[in-house]
Write a protein that binds this DNA or RNA. Structure first.
Length: 463
RNA sequence: UCCCCGGUAGCUCAGUCGGUAGAGCGGGUGACUGUUAAUCACUAGGUCGGCAGUUCGAGCCUGUCCCGGGGAGCCA
């Protein structure tokens, strides 16, 4: 018989019939040895479950095989049969096994639960564990679901630039991009002479694709970005990273109500998608990471989000009788503890707070008729807090120009942004959703560093 | 950046009043033989985060630095 093609373990486990000859390859998760025959559990990353391989002692390299340890990679040819043992439907009776790569005794992953902190120090090996392989399969599936959601609704995916010369993105501290010799920086009148730099001007990594994507919104209609985003804030929390992925939809001829509707539908779609398409992986999180996970997810999918004007949110907080570390007052931004009270204790479900005081929000948000608030909205979810921040954008040329001047920004920096309002302006709205925060919501994982392959945070650039 | 907690074997942790180091898992060796994080026996394995100090004596007390975690701010 000729060498069969490699079959993935997920396909073996979903098999409906026995197979006389299969070829599978993977990494040993555990090996139970005896003199006459042994059990090897093999995982190839195609699914959470392992397949059990039976090795009879009469195969030629038996003594070599039984000395293998967790982590070794092997190639197995054998027969797929119904398992006579309990606990699994199928198993493979090996005819021959080739060792592809051994794993010496200092292999850092063991057949037991490790802490997330430890696994973070071996981020190159952690996807070989059950929990992390599940996270990264879900991450991949959800990335696809994001495109599917928007493509089904005729949103165009726009690739906004990673390197920006715009110092007006205004969403946080930026990383510089330069080819200047840091040991010999050219100066002009005491300041860095950026004319000598690669782009001939100061350049940075993007903190948001929003301003760029707005120009496409006002031409292609409904658009979105999905890509990496960089912020050099010195944030040391379980919810922030220096490099993360963000989704920013932007809808033409849309107002804040449309924006809130889209935000809710988007989150519900993605949660539902995970429940339907990643059920086996999700079960691991419901069992070992967050016992209430399925209840939380079902609550999100089955109920409309609460829509709450900022002013009413302040009233609720003031009348709650709850002692907060930070005072609640109209005009002040809601603190984490306030947001958590609203979504976790008071409503016990996602809450959309909207119409915030203008002084605590960005210049591009649309001024409401009361001249005191802007058409902004934040979607708050239990355990994470803010997962979406969005707004209807100021489309009125004069009003936008005045806001830019009132905030002492240089109008010249915003010439192309203002142009979009000068020529055929139109109402539009959008939001930003942190992809990793969504993954935290869906999996119950409590530290954002554990839902991205190699986290970048202040003072951490390993791997 | 600020506040709090922690750092002991490869991993997870215990360590009493300050008297010089322990367990489980993992590794090795053997037994068992349809197991399921198998089980049983034996065995190897330590700069107690670094440096300085107090003390006859420090894993334990003091100072300082490094690292990790939780919370806050900034936000997604």
């Amino acid at each position: 018989m000729s060498m069969p093609e490699r079959i993935k373990i997920v396909d073996l486990l979903n098999s409906t019939e026995t197979k006389s000859l299969v070829l599978l390859k993977g990494w040993i998760r555990t090996l139970r040895e005896s003199k006459e025959f042994s059990f090897i559990e093999v995982n190839d990353g195609s699914c959470l479950a392992n397949i059990q391989v039976i090795v009879d002692s009469d195969i030629e390299n038996y003594t070599e095989i039984v000395k293998l340890t967790t982590g070794a990679s092997i190639s197995i040819q054998g027969e797929l049969i119904e398992s006579p043992g309990k606990g699994q439907k199928w198993e493979v009776r090996a005819k021959s096994i080739d060792v592809l790569g051994v794993a010496p005794e200092d292999f850092p992953l063991q057949k037991k639960r490790h802490t997330d902190e430890y696994l973070r120090t071996i981020a190159h090996l952690r996807p070989r564990s059950n929990k992390y392989s599940a996270i990264f399969r879900i991450r991949s599936k959800l990335s696809f679901a994001i495109h599917q959601f928007f493509q089904e609704r005729d949103f165009q995916w726009i690739h906004t630039p990673i390197i920006t010369g715009s110092d007006c993105e205004g969403a946080g501290e930026m990383f510089s991009v330069t080819t200047l010799d840091m040991n010999d920086i050219p100066k002009k009148n005491g300041a860095v002479d950026y004319e000598k730099d690669f782009f001939g001007k100061e350049a940075s990594l993007t903190v948001s694709g929003q301003l760029s994507v707005e120009t496409f919104c006002l031409s292609l209609g409904n658009v979105y970005t999905f890509g990496p985003t960089f912020r050099s804030e010195n944030s040391n929390t379980s919810r922030h990273m220096s490099e993360f992925w963000m989704i920013e939809p932007e809808m033409a001829f849309a107002d804040l109500q449309d924006d809130m509707k889209l935000g809710q539908e988007f989150i519900q779609y993605l949660v539902k998608y995970t429940m339907d398409e990643c059920a086996e992986d999700l079960e691991l999180f419901a069992k070992f990471v967050d016992k209430n996970l399925m209840t939380t997810l079902e609550n999100i999918v089955n109920n409309d989000f609460i829509r709450l004007p900022y002013t009413e949110a302040v009233t609720i907080l003031e009348q709650s009788g709850k002692k907060f570390e930070f005072d609640v007052a109209w005009g002040k931004d809601l603190q984490s503890e306030h947001e958590r009270f609203l979504t976790e204790e008071h409503f016990k479900q996602p809450v959309i707070v909207y119409d915030y005081p203008k002084d605590i929000k960005a210049f591009y948000m649309r001024m409401n008729d009361d001249e005191k608030t802007v058409a902004a909205m934040d979607i708050l979810v239990p355990a994470i807090g803010e997962i979406i921040g969005g707004s209807q954008r100021e489309e009125r040329y004069d009003v936008l120009k005045k806001r830019i001047n009132d905030m002492n920004f240089d109008e010249a920096d915003y010439w192309w942004y203002l142009d979009t309002r000068k020529y055929g302006t139109a109402p539009h709205a959008g939001f930003g959703l942190g992809f990793e925060r969504l993954l935290m919501l869906v999996t119950g994982v409590s530290n954002i560093r554990d839902v991205i392959p190699f986290p970048r945070t202040p003072k951490h650039l390993e791997f």
